[in-house]
Nucleic acid binder design. Structure first.
Lengths: 206, 206
DNA sequence: TCAAAATTACGTGTATTCACGTAGGCTCTT
DNA sequence: AAGAGCCTACGTGAATACACGTAATTTTGA
């Protein structure tokens, strides 16, 4: 029996995965968490073989959680069950030490295959992943994870605040907020506010 | 046995719900669809008691699907399992004839209660719904469904095109695109591009 | 401890968005 | 036939966003 913990901020997804996986007898869900912090807390009391986590979660995202898990519980295998296909996140998750990656539109068979593979010490990556990584290579664009301040400002932009409003809220110069905004546009390789907001939503920031 | 069809554009949510609900013996999933069109096609060959649908789906959204279903299969009960809490959509779904409304963060117990209720001819609405509807009443804002042209332009805005670019694409004057943009901002009661993009994503337009 | 990154901020200029108004031609429904 | 809603378009002006640069201070991590 492979002991599994699921981390995702959507209750119904957790519950659905649980029901789906427990129809099999090769694994057992021993716990679930709604964010990275809960996940780490849970692991202290509940050892498990495989953690199946989303990337975008409030409080602590999957990347940071993965790093922490492998630091404190190195025998645990972390795999990613992601809702999006952002090349930067995939890379960050792999760098953090995730050994599996499955997309939301995968079949349950694929998910089960992936779980068995990572538990057996192998790596499992969705076929689509290779295409994305290939494109990333050719495109050559490095994706930087945003800093705390940048996230904060991106969040406010997505909440429909203007630069002057954000500046007032954070006790900053409008110029500073503008600089952050422009850095965000460059880092995320988008064209304007619309692109920023889409990224914020995709990445679970709002 | 209550015969259920699930409609949602996310495979893993469908599969999860299926596994979750089939642990009970009071209902059976007889089919699933990824959008409104698939749902209607499915109903032609597969009669069911309760349709459990998301609102935001590509091709045909939940509101239109609900109308069509109740037109062609009036005995079918339609309930909404929604990912968002947009007051306008809730109202539209109710006007379209949905008799149940459950949020994504509901428990499986609540979902089961809701299914039984609507099958028994009752209505079931999440408690949180009342709060939202109350606020809607006091706010008094009517939500207008967007016209085809407005949707088209909103889509392009969300794809990071500027007004001049959109004007060129659609062979329109920049002023016209600007007018549409402003009408969108007013209709959707948002402040700027960020709000428009959020709406576009929430409503499944992109 | 030294380099890299983050945070702060400014200068200058252009492009775009946003706000508020008006208005003709169009289709659809009553 | 008349009203409603949609699509089109313009005028004007202020506010905001976007582009490209520089740069000092602080924080962080190897």
């Amino acid at each position: 029996m492979i002991k599994i913990i699921i981390a995702d901020d959507h209750y119904i997804i957790r519950d659905g995965l649980k029901a789906m996986l427990e129809k099999n007898d090769f694994c057992k869900i021993v716990g679930e968490a709604a964010n990275g912090e809960e996940l780490l807390e849970l692991l202290k009391t509940t050892p498990c073989d495989v953690v199946c986590t989303d990337i975008s979660m409030p409080v602590m995202d999957g990347v940071e959680a993965t790093k922490q898990i492998l630091k404190h519980f190195p025998k645990t295998k972390v795999m990613c069950l992601s809702m999006h296909e952002e090349a930067g996140f995939i890379k960050k998750m792999m760098e953090a030490g995730a050994v599996g990656y499955v997309f939301k539109d995968a079949s349950k068979e694929e998910l089960q295959t992936a779980i068995k593979a990572v538990h057996g010490g192998k790596k499992y990556f969705n076929q689509k992943l290779f295409d994305i990584l290939l494109n990333m290579e050719s495109g050559g664009k490095e994706v930087n994870i945003l800093s705390a301040r940048e996230k904060e400002i991106l969040k406010l932009i997505s909440e429909e605040y203007t630069n002057p409003e954000i500046a007032e809220k954070l006790f900053l110069s409008v110029r500073t907020v503008d600089t952050h905004r422009q850095n965000l546009i460059q880092k995320l390789d988008v064209k304007n506010t619309a692109g920023l907001v889409k990224y914020a939503i995709k990445s679970g920031l709002i």
